[in-house]
Design a protein around this nucleic acid. Structure first.
Length: 723
DNA sequence: TATTGTGTTATTTTT
DNA sequence: TAACACAATA
């Protein structure tokens, strides 16, 4: 059994599995079998009796990754898998916090609030502060507070006499109030879960010791994405046995804006004495050409351990680079290419993916796919439990389950409309605050003391009565039955029914699905824990469809055929990143992630002009394209006039503008501004911008002062000289 | 209180 | 463009 496990591994993988003692960093490149190593390692530890499952801690970032590992391990060791401490950072931290909640001033049934609730709460708090919310939106406070929790800089804010560097007025006070309110609601946000663990460990060393003694082996997935608090947490838990195995890829660190600190993986050997480092460099996913492209891009980064992926697979198809006049022809041609491949049975639709830098780019593809009637799915966006109607429904349940849940109550108090306006709600909220009672009790009190008038009074009175009745329903009937009753009696379903649009019908369907899904839970608490920490199951509605998603969302996935559109300065790399510190390195890693998703074919594209936020923007090809290896050819200068959308025009265009066809874009030497160029100073015509005069020439790029649209930079191939 | 109009502003989002 | 917040109004 043991030998069979090891026989499936290459030398480096085997080394990583067998080196069970002491700190180990496994630098696992894309597609090198990192999950295999993690699972084999755990199986090896158990089967060699180095430790029992209860003594192993394995943390991931996503439920998906945790579930995958659990499944693979379970296939070998059976039910024992359930004794492992395996899960996301947040779920394990929640588990520990619940056990010792009293140490941090919570009850063990505290609720975990999501971003929506966080924002709602912050808005309430900020409202009392006379802050210009235009200049300083609550969102900014939320971001800052989350980041502080990730980075563990909360203490420094509290201890400092002066305000912090964020420029957000009263941040310190608002933060303090925010924490107070959470505490009094017996609630914690995501950042708190980890932070409370550290607080527990600090306040109760015997508790820390208990866990340190318990966990003989600690394993971490995606180590490059850990934030400072997670890092401290791991350091503490692994302190006694020092058997920490961190698996990750510094080249795939793409979440710094969420607090991930790439330094954690870069300085691993300094943090842990006698640490070993093993590199997994044999790639089982992509062709040699794709790996070459990935490597030659990432080589330009300085902040990295350095590794080179290789494969036993052949060269494969050449990586392609396409250029377009605009984003619509880009989308049209990509769509057509995928459709052709599918028709030829070369790739199934589900084997193709379009990876974009930013969400707004998906729209052009959505339109193109609808036009071509090709099945597609946009991955990302709202998750099931985040949809408005589902959240509303959940909040009804939350209020019924817990009258003190102010956040949930304030969400549904006037949905459907009950004639309870902002002023009423605000007054009640103030009353609750000054008399130190929940919103629910404040309303009750106000009704008893006759402090409300007419419409609002009657509406709130009956709402309160209903809520109390619903609590009984929750106690006495099954979860789906209770939910059905609540959503009917509250008038919530009726509200959507009377709207009677396609959209509202969809919402009702979602509500039905939501109610049905409740059957899997035995009580409301169990369900609420599930929604707060576990993402909804995957959308299984469309099977064979092209995937369109952001590069971030594609991490960890693979596709035979990958398109990366929008490779222009300002899109990829994004304009914001270009002036952020270390921004470009992270963008480059992002591109590296995108490239390494491809198994067989990779097509990269850029467009001359792009319709962004209501008007046309012209842009230069991405600076990263210069970093591609020589073999990557601009194979086709594909043009079409967006007005026609015609595929015929696209192919005609490619012969008409063939001058770029044979040029190796990436290999072309950098040229300096050239005033001797034949274009310089000439009057030219551009399809989109009309007539203009060339005022600057840099290689194939022309700076043109257009008569109508002003100064733009465009590629030489897209303008024609006029007499 | 609810509706309508105006202005502002646009990355990435594992829990 | 389109989504959102907020102010002015019915």
């Amino acid at each position: 059994m043991e030998e069979q496990q090891l026989a499936n591994l290459n030398q480096a993988q085997r080394d990583a599995v067998l080196k069970s003692e002491g700190p180990l960093l496994v630098l696992a490149g894309a597609g090198t079998g990192k999950t295999k190593v993690l699972t084999s390692r755990i199986i090896h530890i158990i089967n060699s009796y180095l430790a029992s499952p209860l003594q192993i801690l394995a943390v991931t970032f996503t439920n998906k990754a945790a579930a995958e590992m659990k499944k693979r391990i379970g296939e070998v060791i059976g039910d024992q898998v359930n004794n492992l401490w395996i899960g996301t950072f947040h779920s394990i931290a929640a588990r520990i916090t619940r056990r010792h909640a009293e140490i941090v001033g919570l009850k063990n049934d505290f609720t975990i609030i999501d971003q929506d609730d966080q924002l709602r709460l912050l808005k309430q708090i900020i409202a009392d502060f006379n802050i210009d919310t235009k200049q300083f939106p609550a969102k900014n406070y939320l971001n800052k507070i989350s980041r502080m929790k990730d980075l563990g800089t909360v203490q420094s804010l509290q201890n400092q006499g002066r305000e912090d560097d964020s420029g957000l007025p009263k941040l310190k006070d608002i933060f303090a109030l925010y924490q107070n309110r959470l505490k009094s609601m017996n609630a914690a946000d995501f950042g708190d879960l980890l932070a409370y663990n550290l607080e527990i460990f600090a306040k109760a060393p015997e508790v820390l010791e208990q866990y340190q003694n318990k966990f003989h082996y600690v394993l971490v997935d995606e180590y490059q994405d850990t934030n400072n608090v997670q890092y401290q947490w791991l350091l503490k838990l692994a302190a006694k046995y020092q058997n920490i195995c961190a698996v990750g890829d510094d080249d795939q660190s793409i979440y710094s804006w969420r607090g991930a600190n790439i330094a954690n993986i870069l300085r691993f050997e300094k943090d842990f004495a006698n640490a070993s480092v093993i590199r997994l460099e044999q790639n089982y996913r992509s062709t040699a050409n794709i790996l070459k492209a990935a490597d030659s891009v990432i080589l330009n980064n300085k902040e990295r351990h350095g590794k080179t992926l290789w494969t036993e697979a052949g060269e494969g198809e050449q990586v392609k680079l396409l250029s377009f006049v605009d984003d619509r022809s880009e989308a049209a041609t990509i769509t057509e290419t995928i459709a052709n491949y599918a028709r030829q049975r070369k790739y199934k639709l589900s084997e193709a993916a379009i990876l974009v830098r930013a969400g707004y780019q998906t729209r052009a593809f959505e339109e193109a796919f609808i036009r071509a009637s090709l099945p597609y799915k946009i991955i990302g966006g709202l998750k099931f439990y985040e949809r408005m109607e589902v959240k509303d429904a959940i909040c009804y349940l939350r209020v019924a389950a817990n009258f003190g849940d102010d956040l949930a109550l304030s969400r549904i108090i006037n949905v459907p409309k009950r004639g309870v306006g902002d002023t009423t709600i605000n007054n009640l909220y103030q009353k609750g605050k000054s008399e130190n009672m929940s919103l629910f009790l404040a309303i009750k009190d106000a009704i008893a003391k006759n402090e409300l008038k007419g419409k609002a009074k009657d509406a709130l009175k009956s709402l309160l009565e209903q809520i109390e009745k619903w609590r009984a329903a929750l106690d006495n009937s099954s979860l789906p039955d209770a939910a059905k009753l609540i959503l009917m009696e509250s008038g919530y379903i009726q509200m959507w029914q009377s709207e009677n649009t396609l959209e509202s019908q969809g919402r009702i369907e979602n509500i039905d699905e939501f109610v049905g899904s409740l059957a899997e839970f035995s009580n409301i608490t169990e369900f609420l824990e599930y929604v707060s920490l576990v993402e909804a199951k995957e959308d299984k509605s469309v099977q064979d469809a092209v995937s369109v998603m952001t590069v971030h969302a594609a991490k960890g996935l693979e596709f035979s055929l990958v398109f990366i559109p929008g490779l222009e300065d300002g899109v990829f790399p994004s304009s914001r990143s270009m002036d952020e510190r270390n921004g470009l390195e992270e963008e480059r890693r992002l591109l590296y992630v995108a490239i390494t998703r491809a198994r067989k074919e990779l097509v990269m594209c850029y467009a001359q002009t792009r319709f962004v936020f209501g008007d046309y923007q012209s842009s230069m090809p991405s600076r990263f394209l210069k970093e591609l290896p020589e073999g990557v050819k601009l194979v086709e200068s594909a043009n079409s006039f967006s007005s026609g959308y015609s595929y015929g025009a696209a192919s005609r265009g490619s012969s008409g503008y063939g001058s770029a066809a044979q040029t190796s874009f990436a290999a072309r030497p950098q040229t300096l501004p050239d005033s001797s160029d034949p274009f310089f100073g000439k009057r030219v015509f551009h399809q989109k911008f009309g007539y203009g005069k060339v005022v600057e020439v840099e290689g194939s790029r022309l700076g043109i002062s257009f008569e109508k649209s002003g100064r733009k930079t465009v590629m030489k191939d897209f303008v024609a000289l006029v007499a």
